[in-house]
Computed example of a mutant assay.
Amino acid sequence: MHLYQRLPIFVFEIEACENLKFITMAIRFNLDRNGQHLSLADWQRLPQAARETLASCLPGDDDFAARLDEIARDHLGRAVERSVDPASTAWQDTNTLPPGLLRQCELADLTPPDVGDWATLPAFRRYVLTKLSRRDTPNHCFVPAMLEFGLARTPAEL
């Protein structure tokens, strides 16, 4: 069984995250939710089994922070840092599309979703789209995520 088949990984993440070389969106969510920061370099220093343990945590897992701190102490020699920049909470507002999402739609030449469609998305999916939209440059995962979440159509569907 492939790793992605037993972990909370979106289809658009499989190529980058299948071997857990990169941090999954579920882990990013848990890091942001707990005000923790883990660099990619530190993530890659963790043994594969530790990465799999963390990657198996569902978004919003209440035990994630303690589990990460324990793993970091065991394998990095210290607890993880606390994030100095609070994560955006724009994804929590179901009445307004985040400005970054609108910008990414414009950059990708996509029609933004309706606010009603945004509001009905599960919170974790809203978080993912907001996280993918935080920069002013195109994000290569944004369009695949929009397609996967049913918020964009392929040219064949138009």
Rank of each mutant, 00 (worst) to 15 (best):
A79C: 14
V115W: 07
F124V: 10
C105G: 04
L102T: 03
R134F: 10
W118G: 04
T94Y: 06
L151M: 10
P86L: 09
P99Y: 05
T111R: 12
V128P: 09
D93V: 06
D85S: 13
D74A: 15
A156H: 14
P144G: 05
D109L: 10
E106V: 00
G100K: 03
P99M: 05
S83E: 10
L110T: 02
A90K: 09
L107Y: 06
P86A: 12
D136V: 09
D136W: 09
N139E: 11
G116E: 15
L97H: 04
T137H: 12
L121I: 02
D74C: 13
R82W: 11
N95G: 00
R135N: 14
R135K: 15
D85G: 00
E148Q: 09
R125G: 04
S133W: 02
S133L: 05
L107D: 02
F149D: 06
E148D: 06
E81G: 07
Q92G: 01
L129N: 07
P122Y: 12
Q92V: 05
P155K: 10
P144H: 02
S88D: 12
P99T: 00
L158S: 15
R82M: 13
F124W: 11
V128A: 09
A152G: 08
R125M: 12
R134G: 01
A145V: 03
K131E: 13
P86M: 10
H140A: 13
P155I: 10
T96A: 12
L110N: 00
D136R: 13
F149C: 02
R153S: 15
R153V: 14
P113C: 10
T94S: 12
L129Y: 03
L102E: 11
R126H: 05
A152P: 10
V143C: 03
S83D: 08
D74M: 14
R103A: 13
P138K: 14
A123W: 11
A90P: 02
E106L: 07
P144Q: 05
D114C: 09
L147C: 00
D114P: 03
P144N: 02
G116V: 09
D117T: 06
H75C: 10
V115E: 00
D93S: 03
L129T: 06
D117A: 14
E148V: 07
R73W: 11
E157R: 14
A119E: 04
K131R: 15
Q104T: 05
P144W: 05
F142D: 08
V84T: 14
L158N: 14
P122N: 15
C105N: 08
L147K: 07
H140K: 11
F142C: 01
W118S: 09
S88P: 01
R78L: 04
E157G: 09
W91T: 02
K131V: 08
Q104C: 03
T96L: 06
W118T: 03
P112V: 00
D117H: 08
D109M: 05
P112L: 00
W91H: 13
P155D: 09
S83Q: 12
R73Y: 12
Q92K: 15
Q92L: 13
V128H: 08
A119N: 07
D93L: 02
D74Y: 08
L121P: 04
